[in-house]
Amino acid sequence: MSAPAVPSGEIVYEAAGLTKEYDDGRVAALRGVDLTIGQGEFVSIVGPSGCGKTTLLNMLGLLDRPSSGKLHFRGRDLSGIGDPAAYRAREIGFIFQSFHLLPNFTVEENVQMPMFGLPGSPRERRARAVELLEAVGLGHRLDHLPVKLSGGERQRAAIARSLANRPAILLADEPTGNLDSKNSAHVMDILLRLREEHRVTLVMVTHDQELARHGTRIVRIKDGQIVSAS
């Protein structure tokens, strides 16, 4: 059974009966998820491996499309969006468990990537990238390739990158999943601080109950369904 989750404030996302099936319906990753997320919320989505957390996050970021159900963003049906890239470029910042930094580009160039196609000169893109990297404590690593960075530094660079396009929503998929506890805490501190400073809505997938408690709301998923929301 899905339990509807109720936000406070303006509604950003509204999902109704969101379902994702693979292999001609033989495998269901999500089964009729109803979820509402409000502006400025920090929603933690928790659940065991394979429960559908990442699938739900991918739907919110339009990296994947639902098999059925409705998903609205600020009242607009996302299934009708022709170019999901424009939506992601304007509204979304992604943070991944595996960082997904591009290995052939320096840290600073990686942070510039989401700004291509947005207004601004190369000089302005660079200035914003430098500013964000300094904000995550990587001002001294601008010209380093990702391979030269520690795991914690890579995730901090990825956090800087996620804010480059001034998104309204941050979608974080196990952001500390590949980090030790010390780095994990450091990255989480930065994420929380930047969320406040940039006033973004944060949806974070994690299997770490401790981290989930930082959220203003916790949504628990099991077998593709929301089992509780608090």
Partner: peptide
């Protein structure tokens, strides 16, 4: 993988 990352970062298919 790189193309997937760029798409996630808001790069359009045309780009």
């Amino acid at each position: 993988h790189e193309i997937g990352v760029l798409l996630a970062l808001g790069w359009s298919r045309a780009r």
